[in-house]
Design a protein around this nucleic acid. Structure first.
Length: 319
DNA sequence: AAGTACGTAGACTTGTAGCA
DNA sequence: TGCTACAAGTCTACGTACTT
């Protein structure tokens, strides 16, 4: 029996989604993959892979997948330790470091951190973009080694680092505001003025209406715009009002291309970096890069914040 | 001690059946 | 038609016994 080969097969099947593609990646036949998986399943005494399109891990499979990724990461660390600089100088065959990020972080402050990380380690990253409730789930199932999340409670086996808070502004174009809110933001106007929601789970606008404006049970009419840059663009075009992440609209607000729906009212959300509890130099470098950028771009976190939503659940309202 | 032959176990490929 | 599982045969690595 060869545990390494079997774990490699498991990782390849779950990464690629099928036995056939896993076989191509590992340069063996699908049958070899099938046998490795079967042997591993017999050895551990349980089903690891749900055969389907795509193949997905069982609960037990998730545990083994996570274990395999941790081994992979530690091996990469060891290789770097034994031959410092080789990875950076020559590039590497090491698989990319998978992390989950929320859309607004990706659109604002995360990329410079990843550039610094990649420059320091020579490693590539693979981003899984999801809303923050789901980024923690990516971590829980072992598909990523870290996640930018709104969950302050650590996922089992993980550490949490507060990153700071992101400010959201309820914004609209000048023309939109004049057309839909000529007499100010009232309950009646809010119920007919089209809003912008990131996706169906996005509750940030609803929370703003309830918690900041104090209007309960207002059913918003909304466009679904599941892209942060497009969300800003849609606001500029007067498609609706929406909660835009401040760094992306501050200049538009300053130049008067956008206006605050209600002057002085905004929301903040707390973000956290959750990652595997592992003695890994790679993970440490990634954490350093992310927290450094977060310090530069995010506001100071408030103690005791927690949340969920498209974007992270609001933890504070200003105004 | 080093080299060689042989047996064995494990991992593979090929071919094919079964299933959706 | 595409994918996975299974059976049978092949290849390879490794351990052991024997020879030089």
């Amino acid at each position: 029996m060869n545990d390494y080969l079997q774990l490699a097969a498991l990782v390849a099947v779950l990464r690629e989604g099928s036995f056939e593609r896993a076989a191509a990646v590992l340069h063996v036949t699908p049958s070899a993959i099938s046998q490795r998986i079967k042997q591993l399943e017999e050895a551990v005494g349980g089903l690891l892979v749900l055969r389907g399109k795509p193949c997905t891990p069982t609960r037990l499979g998730e545990r083994y997948y996570r274990h395999a990724l941790q081994v992979e990461l530690l091996e990469s660390d060891l290789a770097e330790e034994l031959a410092p600089g080789q990875r950076r100088a020559k590039g590497t065959n090491a698989p990319p470091i998978a992390i989950a990020v929320n859309n607004d972080s990706l659109a604002t402050w995360v990329l410079p951190a990843l550039a610094a990380f990649s420059d320091e380690t020579g490693l590539c990253v693979k981003l899984e973009v999801d809303d923050e409730a789901h980024t923690a789930e990516w971590l829980r199932t072992g598909r990523v080694l870290g996640a930018i999340t709104a969950e302050a409670t650590p996922v089992q086996g993980c550490l949490v680092e507060p990153l700071g808070t992101m400010r959201y502004r309820a914004t609209a174009s000048r023309a939109y505001a004049r057309r839909w809110f000529p007499h100010g933001v009232t309950r009646e106007a809010l119920s007919i003025a089209p809003a912008l929601l990131f996706d169906r789970k996005d509750a940030l606008e609803t929370r703003f209406v309830e918690r900041v404006l104090g209007f309960r049970n207002v059913a918003l009419v909304a466009h679904g715009i599941p892209s942060t840059p497009a969300f800003v663009e849609a606001t500029m075009l007067g498609l609706g009002w929406g909660m835009n992440v401040e760094p992306l609209v501050i200049e538009h607000l300053r130049r008067g291309r956008l206006v605050d729906l209600v002057e002085g009212k905004s929301m903040t959300v707390a973000l956290y970096w959750q990652h595997w509890r592992l003695e890994s130099t790679t993970l440490a470098a990634l954490t350093r890069a992310l927290t450094k950028q977060a310090r530069l771009h995010l506001g100071k976190a408030r103690a005791g914040a927690s949340s969920s939503g498209r974007r992270p659940k609001a933890v504070g309202a200003q105004g």
